[in-house]
Write a protein that binds this DNA or RNA. Structure first.
Lengths: 149, 149
DNA sequence: TCTGATTAGGATATTATCATCCGAATAACC
DNA sequence: GGTTATTCGGATGATAATATCCTAATCAGA
């Protein structure tokens, strides 16, 4: 569901978020701490900075810091720069399938994708850090008896 | 969520399932019908045959046929040979994280994965073909007011 | 102003996924 | 038995994701 790069991004952000008072942390330190290939993480952080999710300063005692509030930073926003979640429009049944009146398989597939994206858009960095109750994830548990088929 | 190869497999199986009375269909015909690269689909079908999902006969008038009942064939079983859905055990927070008492982020990530797998295991080929009500997918809709955070 | 630490960015290598090619093996039909 | 249609399996090629390398640009501090 999440690409390797997406996971790296999340890990790094969670690590930075745990550094209170917005202290700056060099990319190499984050990488060392998390056991992520340093040269690669550098690229990922660079990208997150371009996205405005991280702030950066170069030079001695420089590094990266969170630029947005963890409680308003969704997993979707973190991960989207690195992987595409748009539902593919090709129909599972092959034939040309009117998007306005899609076949069942098509509709189901879109529902899968929407559901996955929904999770990512409802979960924030703060959620991941705080031991908050599962919230939106609860709706993903096994369906209770009356709604199962 | 689904790899390209997984989608090919599903499309092909759906196509074969629509051929009543278990008639055999050559790989090339399936590929032509669905607009999938024929030489690649051949490999996919071969694999599905090894998995016991398809039956095959070589030679003239040969081809592939479904070897299991669509209503007992889950999407998970179709797709698993081509992509791994096992939840990675690496912790999102980096540090060594006791699997028996995982960190919040870890738990949430597992929940995502379990939820995704759950969808795939609850949906059958027959579901995709029949216009059956969404069933298990309904539990993935936006949470109703009282369960949202 | 020099030096060391650090991000920025381009170029390149490595690996996995997707796709193609080719030579068999097998089965139906004449 | 020969011919044609088809699956099977191995080898190879293309493309995208992942990872590394190198050279700047920038900043803090001595």
């Amino acid at each position: 569901m999440l690409s390797q790069t997406g996971v790296y991004a999340l890990q790094a952000l969670l690590h930075l978020a745990s550094h209170r008072n917005g202290a700056q942390v060099p990319a190499a330190a984050v990488a060392r701490e998390l056991g992520i290939p340093g040269t690669y993480l550098a690229k990922v952080l660079q990208r997150l900075a371009r996205e405005g999710i991280l702030g950066s300063t170069r030079g001695a005692r420089g590094g990266y810091r969170l630029a947005v509030d963890p409680s308003s930073l969704t997993v979707a926003r973190v991960v989207t720069p690195f992987q595409d979640f748009r539902a593919p429009d090709a129909c599972l049944l092959g034939g040309p399938c009117n998007p306005l009146e899609p076949c069942t398989a098509h509709a189901r597939r879109s529902a899968w994708n929407a559901a996955a994206l929904d999770i990512l858009e409802k979960t924030t960095l703060a959620d991941l850090l705080s031991g908050a109750p599962l919230g939106s994830l609860r709706s993903l548990a096994y369906p209770t008896s009356e709604e199962s088929r």
